[in-house]
Design a protein around this nucleic acid. Structure first.
Length: 304
RNA sequence: GCCGAGGUAGCUCAGGCGGUAGAGCACGGCCCUGAAAAGGCCGGUGUCCCCAGUUCGAAUCUGGGCCUCGGCA
């Protein structure tokens, strides 16, 4: 098979647009293997909250990076990039097509836009920095890296802390390191799935109802029993925080459902805003179309 | 039926001793380089329940009506 035919495919799009199902179908028809780029499916034990495709739904197609790490562990964009850099040639080596499927913006960004070489998160340092007043942190950043300070809003504590962390650990301003970031060296063929808003909202409501029916609350209870709470990476997952608040008696069942739906929708909007900036995305409106129909068109566009 | 409270943004409500309104959330847009399903920034939203009166001017004052929620019957 010619190497060009195995150039990795990316299927991206907002949450609940149908990427997983379509990804499997495309893989079945093209000898593909899937690399998940879903920022929460990396974690073992978070199945319902992330709407992880079941083994049945995977239909025998290999799904890499799903359940990659334990709930209590961390995973980040650079880890993903390294995993992808290792998996893509391995899959191609089997004469299979690598298909990256997901909507994790920073994770996709790490391979499509690039990410700089630098230190990973240093919890101790972050804690220390976070205890300082915001203005002080911003002033310090302004002194050591005016370029980064100009880009980061004074209220964006997260990014200010990250920039200071990088400087503390490397002695280099983050803005200098960021300039060296490069995409992974493949000619990715990027398909973006989109859906009209009214339908998308209905799908999200159905999906949330399904999660609650399948035992979202119990799943989060198990997670809580393991001592995973605020401050952990998985806690920052839509559906987890809301159930914690429900279990604490702060909100009722109806409010729980409503909040998860609203927060999912806000995520969708942020994902769309991010992806809109990506050049080279081949957008496909899937509103009202069947999986087969969508897959036909993708296969046709890819010529695989 | 009587008494009380109230009807202001999609929702919850603030304000208003007369000069046509506001907060949070929702909603929309934007930013994003090792936390990203996270974090941050910006922006609309309106017969101020209806009708009449007073007034240069009423969402605000007065009267009537309608509706909602309590309490008493």
């Amino acid at each position: 098979m010619p190497r060009e035919a195995l150039a990795p495919v990316v299927v991206l799009g907002p949450t609940a647009v149908g990427k997983s199902v379509v990804g499997v179908e495309v893989a079945l028809r093209s000898h593909g293997e899937i690399i998940s780029a879903d920022s929460r499916s990396f974690f073992r034990g978070l199945d319902i909250a992330t709407d992880k495709p079941s083994l049945v739904a995977r239909r025998g197609v290999p799904h890499h990076l799903i359940d990659r790490v334990d709930l209590a562990e961390g995973y980040d964009a650079m880890s993903f990039r390294k995993d992808a850099a290792r998996l893509i040639p391995a899959i191609q080596g089997r004469a299979h097509l690598p298909i990256i499927v997901g909507g994790g913006t920073l994770y996709l960004g790490a391979i499509l836009r690039g990410i700089f070489e630098g230190p990973s998160a240093d919890e101790g340092l972050r804690k220390e920095l976070e205890s300082r007043p915001r203005q002080e942190l911003y002033d310090r950043l302004h002194k050591i890296d005016p370029e980064a300070a100009a880009k980061i809003h004074p209220n964006d504590r997260l990014r200010i802390v990250r920039a200071l962390e990088v400087y503390e650990l490397t002695g280099n301003p983050i803005s200098v390191l960021q300039r060296r970031a490069r995409p992974l060296g493949y000619s990715f063929r990027i398909i973006g799935l989109s859906r009209e808003r009214a339908e998308h909202r209905r799908v999200i409501a159905d999906r949330v109802d399904g999660m609650l029916r399948r035992g979202l609350i119990d799943e989060v209870k198990r997670l809580k029993a393991k001592g995973l709470g605020p401050g952990t990476q998985v806690y920052r997952t839509i559906g987890v925080r809301e159930v914690f608040s429900y279990l604490a008696g702060e909100i009722g069942l109806e409010e729980l459902r409503g909040q998860i739906i609203v927060n999912t929708w806000r995520l969708v909007r942020r994902q769309l805003a991010w992806f809109r900036n990506d050049e080279g995305v081949n957008w496909l409106n899937v509103t009202g179309r069947s999986v087969d129909d969508i897959t036909d068109e993708i296969i046709c566009r890819l010529g695989v």
